[in-house]
Nucleic acid binder design. Sequence first.
RNA 1: GCCGAAGUGGCGGAAUUGGCAGACGCGCUGGAUUCAAAAUCCAGUAUGGGCAACUAUGUGUGGGUUCAAGUCCCACCUUCGGUACCA
Length: 806
Amino acid sequence: MDYVQVEKKWQKKWQKDKLYSFDKSKVDKKKYVLEMYSYPSGSKLHVGHWYNYGLSDSYARFMRMSGYEVFEPMGFDAFGLPAENYAIKTGIHPEDSTLANIKTMEKQLKAMGAMFDWDYEIKTCMPDYYKWTQWCFLKLYEKGLAYRKQAPVNWCESCQTVLANEQVADGTCERCGSEVIKKNLTQWFFKITDYAERLLTGLDDLDWPSKTKMMQRNWIGKSVGGEITFNIEENGEKFTVFTTRADTLFGCTYVVLAPEHPLTSKITTDSQKKAVEDYIDYAAKASEIDRLSTAREKTGVFTGAYATNPINGRRIPIYVADYVLFSYGTGAVMAVPAHDERDYEFAHKYDLPIERVIGAKGDEDDSLPYVEYGVMVNSEDFTGLTVEDGKEAVLNKLKALGKGDFKVNYRLRDWLISRQRYWGAPIPIVYCDKCGQVPVPESELPVKLPYDIDFTPDGTSPLLKSDEYMNATCPKCGGKAVRDADTMDTFVCSSWYFLRYPDAKNKKEAFDTDWINKMLPVDKYIGGAEHACMHLLYARFFTMALHDMGYIDFDEPFTSLVHQGIIIGPDGYRMSKNRGNVISPDEYIKKYGSDVFRTYLAFGFSYIEGGLWSDDGIKAVHKFLDRVERITGELMKVTTKSDTDVKEIAYTKNYTIKHVTADIENFQFNTAVARLMEYTNALSKYVKAAPDKQTSIDAAKTLALLIAPFAPHFSEELWQGFGEPQSVFNTTYPICDESKLVLDTVEMPLQINGKVKARFFVSSDATKEDIEKFIMETDSLAAHFEGKSVRKVIIVPGKIANIVVG
RNA sequence: GCCGAAGUGGCGGAAUUGGCAGACGCGCUGGAUUCAAAAUCCAGUAUGGGCAACUAUGUGUGGGUUCAAGUCCCACCUUCGGUACCA
């Protein structure tokens, strides 16, 4: 078969027949199968894209043949940093390069022969899309879930630009090598922390990989504890710390503020001023990963100020240290060196008192730092309480004193969405001298991103340089106003795109609520595990917020989730345009066609694991499809038109159906293809050996149907060759006849002391006792332990027999 | 550092979740067919020892639980993903 020609033929025919158009009238049988959309940073798809999209399309085709009306759309995550950087480098406008890339990618995706319904395509950089991204922003704003506050960005003084974390290498600018500093800017945040608890509990009911749920749980990072207020007697200031170990408060011998804590500069004494300021500068250069590293040497300086421990009135010094993060908890901690590793190390270094207040059983023998849960000691009235009771008792006491309370803290932070860049969705807010911050009314959306813009970095947001863009009229008072010059994080665009697809045909309206409620949630979402904590969390947050505002009636976007593995490039890293290690599928497609390539991807890797790219074995898959064509052809010629299969074919056929079906459902495509190879081998053997050729034509047809999800064009061609008038994709996937799988006898291994010594056949319904009796009475089996004393006999019917001898 | 994974023949990868390790395929070796090649077909192929029957060893490393461990527990090593402005 000329695969390349056959594929062209069927792609044309499928398109002409609108075979994959979603039939809205069958929405009650819909399956929304969604692959994470593409980011068009490179101009071309690499083999990793094919791996992701080709195989999830096999799943989608399988679902279609299983009787579902499958909705499988595709689109492009078109805004973002790489296109803008490319523009800065080459002068090519991001819109031009992005749209050109999309065009190439569309062509390649079509050559794949997937079921994508292109009528529903989305591109997030188009006004008809980002109009609704802005709409989402306004809704979150109305609900009080969008607010502005100061936050630091990476700033390169020499390039006069904000840098992404990716552009900072070892604290220096990737472009010019000069030192990167932190600069505070007023930026927009989404209040995802309001949803922390629901994002956490909602995970329980999702059919997601357990590792992904685990990562999200840890990312949200719930901890139960309390807040404790410390006063600074000298100046009447006070601050609060969060702790999960209120029971150790008696052992608190100093407190630490994050360098960014606003109180730091207020309380520092004159003599310490220089040291503290230098330290704050030093800390601003460290990355968060470094600061959190427990292996890094702890540093800090004394502020000169003292606070009062609220439980015992003791005067304790206040330090500044960068192992305390301003973004977590309250940005201040109570230090208990005797019972915390980091505090212990710090206290040792700066010669601060270390005082035990917990002991294993109330004694004091164990070494410090003692971080286990024990019993309180040296804690006045509380001495003798267990840690658990102590936590509660201490907090209750503080609560009564007005110095503390119970509190749940989350590691999750609010989502900073402002970007000081051009290539993103504009933020629909204007600032008016009279009215202040005013949202753009819905009727004026979209706030269009201007095309003519100077996006070279020179210290200001590119949009600031466009008077045409910046000058606006205040929607409230009609006076002069300026627009927000920032754009939104691209994760905002991807937090709701799955809601847009069902409406994407209609370029004017989104949120046809009834329709979206019928089409969502997504039944199967497929994409990389690298999105576990960000995209997948943001999408859940958006869905919950829109649900609470009454726009949609579900509050989780993705019922079931699968991660495909990563295809590693020749240099050992995941393929990406950035790294320049991509392998193009185009040559393979030209040579072998899409079907061979797709089937190879299915067979050569474990889908969930991924692996190092190699094309070893692609020829073998080519041979395999040739073999399928030859053998089905022979079977069609020589078999009598019987309705039943001979026994061995009936068994193999149904065994294959059963396993292939289960494997595809579980995204275990490699074993599914392996089973198809076994079936093909069995048929081949049969055709050659059987004198009577009595098996049914159905045995051949079954093979063509089973293989259809992997090699769609090939299968369609075979199907037509069988004289079938319908498309193979309007045919039902074979169903296993379990009655053909029942065997009279089973083979079992006999182990002596765990080593296999013999095998034997018994009736498949034999009991433990039957089998034991059989072994003892069969001389050839009993010979293996003759003369030795049998200590134990373990028999698991159908699986194993193990005789333990002395 | 922290969070989450992974490690099985020369290679890609299987193993019904505690029950025969290495399915399926690549590669390699030998054979059939052929003037020859391609293609196709047949047989073999974890490692060491042995002509062989057989035997010992073997799932990153070191311990442990169990009649039985790739699978469970403890401690490590290596690689990968994420670490909040790559997406």
